[in-house]
Computed example of a mutant assay.
Amino acid sequence: MSLLHTDFSRPAPAIARTRAVTSPAWRFAAAALLGAWGVALLATWLMQGDTGATGVATAAYLAACAFVGHRIQRAYPHDALGWCNLVTLARMGMAAALIVPVLDPGVSGWAVIALAVVALSLDGVDGWLARRQNLCSDFGARFDMEVDAALAALLALNALAAGQAGPLVLILGVPHYLFLVSGWMMPWMARPLPQRLGRKAGCVLQIAALIVVQVPAISPTLATLAVGIAVLALAWSFGRDIHWLWRRRAG
């Protein structure tokens, strides 16, 4: 075949294969498999989890990675995965390791606090990296939000299982999921919301309060106060968003 009749609009098979292997989804898969070792290490070394609890935490992490990888293929708009998504993936691994103390409430509260503080400290780093690398996307924002929600839910469950707080603490672990269910039932609540600093501040306060109640031998009064303040902050944040969506429901 002459060069005049060669179709240059399609990449050569070798190039196409190289692009497929280096695509964001494949890079994410490789990082996720490496992260599974990290989750297992955190679960056994820091959380002192037994084989069963470590296996559950690692399996849950891999299942979440499979879902996120699928979403990358469908909704991620960039050719580069970026450090931003790797940081969020690391935070997801830390959240998965917190499954161990939920299954074994005898784990040291200080170990839970140490891991949760690191995960919270990295919140915002992924967004900063995304802006710096020009890799901002709706996918990245949603990935970050879901990791925050999972972290809050697991900390709430751990506080309850360890007897650090009463059932009221569960309110701090479910608002995001209640909002999602409401969106399925009432489509007007599933509309995109504007970016608001108050919403992010409420999330940070929520997780910070959940970290405080992990402190061993915390007084019931202080635990109730921390949970109550965070519940009020979340009620204000979610109430404002619901009001904003309600006023635009017919639009």
Rank of each mutant, 00 (worst) to 15 (best):
G106C: 02
A235K: 00
I113T: 11
Q214S: 00
A111G: 12
A230Y: 05
A36Q: 05
A40I: 00
V107C: 08
S9G: 04
V112S: 09
Y61W: 10
L41W: 15
P167E: 09
A96I: 07
T44K: 10
A233L: 07
W184K: 05
M145T: 09
L155A: 09
L103C: 12
F67Q: 06
P167C: 04
G93E: 11
L46Y: 10
G198N: 13
L135M: 06
G166S: 10
W188A: 01
A14W: 06
Q73K: 11
R10D: 10
T88Y: 01
L172D: 05
D144F: 07
M1N: 15
T44N: 08
L46A: 12
G202Y: 02
R142M: 13
A30Q: 04
M186W: 13
F139C: 01
I211W: 13
M189K: 04
V102Y: 08
H70C: 09
V147F: 01
P194M: 09
R248A: 00
P187L: 00
P194T: 06
A116L: 09
I229G: 07
R247M: 08
L122I: 06
N134A: 15
L210N: 04
T224D: 10
D104Q: 11
F179S: 02
V117N: 12
A230C: 03
V213A: 08
M186F: 15
H78T: 07
A90F: 15
C136E: 15
T88P: 10
W128Q: 08
V118C: 11
R10K: 13
A153R: 10
